[in-house]
Design a binder for these strands. Sequence first.
DNA 1: TCAATAGTGTCTTTCAGACAGTATATA
DNA 2: TATATACTGTCTGAAAGACACTATTGA
Lengths: 255, 255
Amino acid sequence: MGGKKGGKAGRQERAEERQFLEDYRRQQYPRPAVTVDLVVFTVVDADLKVLLVRRRDPPFQGSWALPGGFVRVGDAYDEQGESVDDAAHRELAEETGLPRGSCYLEQLYTFGKPGRDPRTRVVSVAYFALVSADKAPLVRAGTDAAAVRWASVGHEVNRSRLAFDHAEILDTALTRIRGKLDYSPIAFELVPLTFTIAELRAAYEAVRGEVLDAANFRRRFAGMLADGLIEQAPGRRLTSTKPAKVYRFAHRRPI
Amino acid sequence: MGGKKGGKAGRQERAEERQFLEDYRRQQYPRPAVTVDLVVFTVVDADLKVLLVRRRDPPFQGSWALPGGFVRVGDAYDEQGESVDDAAHRELAEETGLPRGSCYLEQLYTFGKPGRDPRTRVVSVAYFALVSADKAPLVRAGTDAAAVRWASVGHEVNRSRLAFDHAEILDTALTRIRGKLDYSPIAFELVPLTFTIAELRAAYEAVRGEVLDAANFRRRFAGMLADGLIEQAPGRRLTSTKPAKVYRFAHRRPI
DNA sequence: TCAATAGTGTCTTTCAGACAGTATATA
DNA sequence: TATATACTGTCTGAAAGACACTATTGA
C-alpha cells in the first residue's frame, strides 16, 4: 500500500474527506428560522376562547396573532439549545404567566410553506394548549392587558384578520380538539380540578359548538365513574337551585 | 415637535429602528437544520413492512435508517425555497423511484430534541407514506439495491439498531396508522386499485398485527358498499379455489 | 368428491340518541 | 309552594364480536 489510495486507509481517508465536505456545505446552506406557535384554548361561561396577542411590529403590525416565538438553538458541538417541546412550554409560560406544566400542551402540526413570513423563511411547529376555566382569568394579570386577549372562537375571532397563516393553524387546532374530545380525556383539562357533570358537559358543548342531551351525557359519565377514570370529590357545588355532586379526574396531577 | 423624539414621527422612527435590530439579530441567531424523515409502509404477503436505507456515512455509518433529507431553503427575499410538504414529496419520489403523488403521504410529527444528530442541531418533520402492494416491488428498481430494503415491522426491524431517534419515529408512525385505520380510509392506500375483501382484510390484519373475524369484516365492508365508499369492479380474482369479487375505492384517483 | 376459500345468517352485547319523568334544593 | 336544576328510567336502533352455517369453485 504505497502511493495510490486504493486500500483500507485510502477508503477511510476518502470517507472522512467526504464527511468534511458534506458538513461544511451543510453549514453553508441557508437554514429556516424555527418557531413555535401556540393555540391556547379555554372555556369560560360555556364559550370556547382562544388566546390572541396584538402585534406591535411589522409585518401585520396591529393585527391579532397567535402567541409564539423562536426556538432557542445553540450552535456549539455540545450545546444545541432547547428542544422544540421546551420552547413551546417556555412560550406558554411567558405568554400566560402560568407556571410551567400547569396546562395541557400537545404538538399539533408543523407549518412550513415558503412565504408564511415575508421577512425570512420560517418553519413553525404549532402546539395547542388547554387552560382550565379557573386559571383563565389569571392569564392577563402579568402581561400588557391591551396586547393580550381571550377571543371567542365562535363569534369574536375574525379569522381572515389573523396575522400570517394563523387562521389555518387555528382551524387545524379546532379540528384536532373536536376529534380528540370523544376518545381522550382532554375535556378534563378545560374544567377546574373538581367539577360537576353540568360543568363538564358545558366544556364539551363549548368545544363542539352544539348542545348535548344532559341525560345521555350523564350516562357516559357514569361509565367513566365505573371505570375509575373519575371519582366523586367531597363537597357539593352550590351555584344553582339544587346543589350538584362534585367529581375529579382520577389520574390528574394535583397542581 | 423639535429636538425630542416624542411625536408621531419619533415613534415611527423608533419602531423602524427596533424592527431593524430585531431582524438583524434574528439573522445572527443560530438556526437549526430542518429535515424531513419518511416512514414508508407497505403490505406484502400479509406482512407490514417499512422502507429502510443503509447509511453510507457517519454518524451511524452502516446502520439502517429511515429515508429523509434536508428541506431546501432559499434565503432570497422573494425565493424562500420549497415547502416542507414539497420536500417530503420530493424525498419520497427520490427514495422510491415512484412518480410524485402516486402514494399517500401525511405529516406525522416533528422531532426536535437537541442532540438528535450529533453533528448539528436538526429539527425533523416526520411523514408517513403508504405504498400499495402492487407498487412495492418497483421500489428497489431504481436505487442501489444493497442500500434500500423493505424490513418487516413485526420481525426484522431491530428497533434499537435504527439510526438517530428513528425507532421512536417508527413507533409514532405505527401508533398513528393503527389509530387511523378504523376511522379513515387509509387501508385502501395499501392495496391495489382493485382488491378483494380478503386482500383488504389482510391489509388491516397486517397493520394491526392481529387476525380479524372474516364474517364481521365482511359486514363492515358491506356498510361501506352501501355508503358508496367502495363499488364493485369488473372481473374476479382467480388466485384461490373459489374466485372472489373485486372492488375498488370509489373516491380514489385513478393513477 | 374433497378441500379450500367465498360468502350468509343469527345471537348477543354494548352503546348512543331521544325523551318522558322524578327528586330535591332554593326563593 | 313554585321553579329551576339535578338526576333516573326506558325505548329504540346501529354496530361489533362470536360463531355456526351454506355456496361455489379448482384439483
